[in-house]
Simulated assay, not measured.
Amino acid sequence: MNSTIGNRRRSNAGLLVGAMILTLSFPLGSSALAQDTDVVGRVNGQDITADDLALAEQMYGPQLAQMPPDARRSILVDALIDMKIVSAAARAANVTGQDAYKRQLAFLEDQTLRTLFLEQQVEEAVTDSVVRATYDEQAARIPPVTERRLRHILLGSEGDAVEVIEALKGGKAFVELAQERSADEVSRVKGGDLGFVAEGQVLPEIDAAAATLQPGEYTQTPVASAFGFHVVLLEETRNRPAPSFESVAPQIRQALKAAEERRIIAELKEGAKIEKLVPDVAPPQGEDGHEH
C-alpha cells in the first residue's frame, strides 16, 4: 500500500478511536447489534467480530457516509483494532481502577440501560395494529374538502373566448381546443387540465365560475381575469381523499413512539423521589421560534 494512503487511513481510524469515548454517551438501539459473528480482525488473539463492526457502523456511519462501502468497512476495522490495543494498554495501566473510569462507566451503563429499556417498552406498545388504528382514527376526523377537476382555455381577448365557446357548442373537443388555442403554456399540453383543486387554489374568477357548473358543463360566457379570458370546464367533483396509510405510517409511528416514551418517563417520575438542586431555566428559542 502507498505509505501516504496508509497513513491517511490510519489517521482516519485514529480520529474515530479518539471520538469513541464521547460517542458512546449517545443512545444506541439494539438494532445495531448484528447476529453475524464472523471474525473481521484479531488483536493479540482477541477476535473483532461482525457484531463489533455493526456497532461501529451504527456510531460512525454518518461520518463516513461519502466513502465507498469497502473503504468504510476497512477504516472501521482499523478503528476497532486501535481501540482494542489502546484499551488493553489502559487496563495494563490500571485505568479501570481509577474513579474517573468508574464514573464514566456508570454513566454509560445508565445511558445504555435507559436506551434499551425505552426502546423495548416502546416497540412493545407501538405495534403495527396500533399505528393502523391511529391512522384510521385520524383519517376519519379529517373534515371533508370538496375538490373540483377543472380544465380551462386561456384566450387573449373576449372575442377569441366566444369563438372557442361556439366551437365547443359545435361539438369540438375541449381538450383539442385547449391544445390548439390556450395561452396557458403549462396546462395547454395537458388539454387545459388544472387537476383537482379546492376552493382558493385557483383564480377567484375561475373558482366562482366553476361553482355554477355541473360535472361535464363548461362556461357559456367568457370568464375575465387579470390574465385574459377563460373558458372553464368542470369534469368532476369529489371529497379530497385522506393521505394513504403507506405515505404517513412512518410519521405516525415516530409520533406514537415519542409520545409513549414521554408517557413512560412521566409515569416513572411519579413514583420517584426527585430533587433537582439547580434552578429550572427554559432553553433559548431557536430561529424557528421553537425551544431547542
Score class of each variant (00 low, 15 high):
residue 32 A to M: 06
residue 54 A to Q: 05
residue 204 P to D: 10
residue 181 R to M: 07
residue 236 E to K: 08
residue 3 S to A: 09
residue 274 I to W: 13
residue 28 L to K: 03
residue 73 R to S: 12
residue 58 Q to D: 07
residue 71 A to W: 00
residue 289 G to W: 08
residue 63 Q to M: 14
residue 250 P to I: 04
residue 238 R to G: 07
residue 117 F to V: 14
residue 158 E to W: 03
residue 210 A to T: 11
residue 48 I to F: 05
residue 24 L to S: 05
residue 18 G to D: 14
residue 199 E to T: 13
residue 157 S to G: 07
residue 40 V to Q: 02
residue 77 V to S: 05
residue 1 M to P: 11
residue 277 L to V: 09
residue 60 Y to S: 05
residue 133 A to C: 00
residue 211 A to C: 12
residue 204 P to K: 01
residue 35 Q to M: 13
residue 251 Q to S: 07
residue 164 V to M: 12
residue 233 L to P: 02
residue 103 R to G: 07
residue 115 T to P: 04
residue 79 A to G: 05
residue 226 A to E: 05
residue 231 V to F: 11
residue 289 G to E: 10
residue 271 G to Q: 09
residue 45 G to F: 08
residue 154 L to Q: 03
residue 145 V to W: 13
residue 155 L to V: 05
residue 212 T to L: 13
residue 231 V to G: 00
residue 1 M to C: 10
residue 172 K to D: 14
residue 278 V to Q: 02
residue 183 A to C: 06
residue 202 V to L: 09
residue 38 D to R: 13
residue 151 R to W: 07
residue 69 P to M: 01
residue 233 L to E: 13
residue 127 T to C: 01
residue 43 V to A: 00
residue 65 A to S: 15
residue 184 D to Q: 04
residue 94 N to M: 14
residue 104 Q to P: 03
residue 49 T to G: 08
residue 276 K to S: 13
residue 141 R to K: 14
residue 112 T to C: 04
residue 134 T to A: 09
residue 14 G to S: 12
residue 288 D to P: 01
residue 5 I to F: 10
residue 205 E to T: 10
residue 270 E to F: 15
residue 87 S to Y: 10
residue 289 G to F: 05
residue 150 L to R: 04
residue 12 N to C: 15
residue 156 G to Y: 04
residue 162 V to P: 01
residue 230 H to L: 05
residue 11 S to Q: 12
residue 53 L to D: 04
residue 221 T to Y: 15
residue 209 A to D: 12
residue 180 E to D: 08
residue 60 Y to T: 03
residue 248 V to E: 12
residue 139 A to K: 04
residue 225 S to F: 10
residue 30 S to E: 11
residue 127 T to N: 01
residue 74 S to V: 06
